[in-house]
Design a binder for these strands. Structure first.
Lengths: 227, 227
DNA sequence: TGTACATCAGTGAACGCGCGTTCACTGATGTAC
DNA sequence: TGTACATCAGTGAACGCGCGTTCACTGATGTAC
């Protein structure tokens, strides 16, 4: 089946439609995604899905990769519009991009950043897509560091932590000071902590001004990490 | 059935055993808890569970309340051992208590702080237990504020956020400056963000020195909130 | 341009399993006199 | 202290539903000559 044939195009459209329908189901059923329910919604018999995905897990994996890529796209394009020298602006843009995407796609957010799906082990393929967003954030710290605006604060890091962060820096941003990266990971973790908190309902009946509250947090974290 | 009778005692033991077995299942199946599996493990017929819990949701609710109380117990007793005037020590103790409990009881942690269980709506009863841990943390900020060690930093809060935090302060810690409470919620959110990140596998293959890394984060957050 | 064959999509039935919940029942334990 | 009755725990069968996956099949679409 040559790539450009009609059959290939129809096939690609079917795959896309299966994923779209599956995403709709994620929203109501969480990760207990049912192949039969997806097939039913598409007016097919359940076994027909197996022409496109070898198993339920394979479909889940595809959805996970798509989700990582979707946040990655959103973050990359939002961040790219900010002045390169405005490090704080870039960090805040990343934060708001993640949050906006998560609010628009809560089930997919939960799929990749929520509690792990019981009985599902993510294959290696997902990690490449997962790294995209992290890379954008780390680059802010690399650039800030290179420009001299961001300098190590003199925190003494535990030896083990230093080693871990050095290894991480070597693979994703060679030359980046582990201590600066440590600050970056704090921003990273707070960002996802804040979004998860809001999305998973922990702010219910407490904070109503959510966007402003999120912005407040991100600014304080930016203060903390020195950006 | 008088409260002290043999039957009442046996009944209480049965309820406790059902919950213990159910907790074991949470660990492998996540929130897709199966009443039949629990009954099977106890050597009973599935319908027998209904003598003790009216439905699967009611059992889940009991597990959720127990979990909130368990973290609450752990946090309260750990925090109580710290010098009252050592506000930073109290905050760090709370953080480590939450993390330790979460590592020891990952499934229960996920149940209360992870992605919401699809199709399950938590009844009002759970919120009382949920508040216990928050109260311990807020008290640190109240005490710090009263002692003068912790003073508003002069951040200007958005009006809506100010209103929300004022209302929250009024109900949980009357008189507490909303701006101080805002700092408290940052520590709160980062704490749970960091624990969730670790527990849900986001640190895998990146950070190995986890306790030290957690401690590092909590210290930086303590710096930020001025404690 | 037409024909023969290979590829592929989708069907429908089936396997073997799971689930929550209800209901009439047996037999044991407790309570009131 | 003994007996009659009420309460309760647990059984076993059943209802009605769900699921993932396999398999032999039909019929349509593509490919090679």
């Amino acid at each position: 089946m040559p790539a450009g044939s009609i059959r290939a195009r129809v096939r690609a459209e079917m795959i896309a439609e299966i994923k779209t329908v599956a995403r709709r189901h994620l929203a109501t059923d969480g990760a207990n995604l049912s192949l039969r329910a997806v097939a039913r919604d598409m007016g097919m018999v359940s076994s027909a899905i197996y022409r496109y995905f070898a198993s339920r897990d394979e479909l889940l994996t595809a959805l996970i990769i798509d989700a990582y890529n979707a946040v990655g796209d959103a973050v990359e394009s939002t961040e790219a519009r900010v002045d390169r020298a405005d490090f704080r602006g870039r960090l805040l843009a990343i934060g708001h991009a993640v949050r906006s995407w998560a609010l628009a796609n809560p089930a997919e957010y939960a799929l990749i950043y929520g509690s792990p799906v019981p009985g599902y082990a993510a294959p290696q393929d997902t990690t490449v897509a997962a790294l995209r967003t992290a890379t954008v954030l780390v680059r802010v710290f690399v650039d800030g560091s290179d420009s001299g605006a961001l300098r190590p604060s003199g925190d003494q890091l535990d030896d083990g932590v230093h080693r871990d962060l050095k290894a991480a820096a070597d693979s994703i941003a060679p030359g980046l000071d582990p201590e600066v990266l440590a600050r970056g990971t704090i921003a990273w973790i707070h960002l996802f902590g804040a979004v998860s908190f809001e999305l998973f309902g922990q702010l219910n009946n407490v904070i109503e001004a959510r966007e402003a509250y999120f912005d407040y947090q991100m600014r304080r974290i930016a203060d903390l990490v020195g950006v």
